[in-house]
Amino acid sequence: MNPAGVFVPGTTWLHRVSAGVKVGGLFAAVLLVLLIRTPLLAGLAVLVAGVVLASARIPWSVVRGGLRGLAIVLGVLFLVQWWASGLDDAAVTLGRGAASILLAWTVSMTTRVAAMLRVLEVGLRPLTWVGASPERAALTVALAIRCVPMVLDAVRQANEARSARGARPSVSSLAVPVVIRSLRMADGLGEALVARGQPRD
């Protein structure tokens, strides 16, 4: 999995500020960025976002991988936009996208997922109005995060088993084993939760 966006330990001001403030700030910043209508302001927003990211002192090796993926996606969006509605609009969209994504990265790379989940728990508080539990919802998100490398591993294993048998990539040689492995994984995970006395609420 690409490490960009995953927490990197550190001691900068961004690491010390509480997660709630950072997420609130991100929300406000993204709303501001969406109001941008000129390429100049969009460029400025990217610059500011870049400075904020730099102040978190994330190792360049971590940031680089994510930037490449970001560049490809935004590049495609830029070309589509250019063709659809002209260069100025395309530049604004590019700048807005890049700025908000860089800021979102900065928040997630300086905030422990646990802290982020507590913010999510607060954000999900309205769920209690419909009888659902925000704690359980946040817990499910944490479980899902934990499962991503496991499912990626299941995909890799299924692919290895397929090539070991000399089978061509197909639905039955890849997709079916991955889904069945995932369901088994869910059984194991459910059992582990029960054995650890969860969910307690």
Partner: peptide, 15 residues
């Protein structure tokens, strides 16, 4: 469990 992977439910060790 025999497979610790299915027992570890959170993303990081501390969590």
């Amino acid at each position: 469990f025999s497979d610790a992977d299915s027992q570890i439910v959170m993303p990081t060790v501390r969590e």
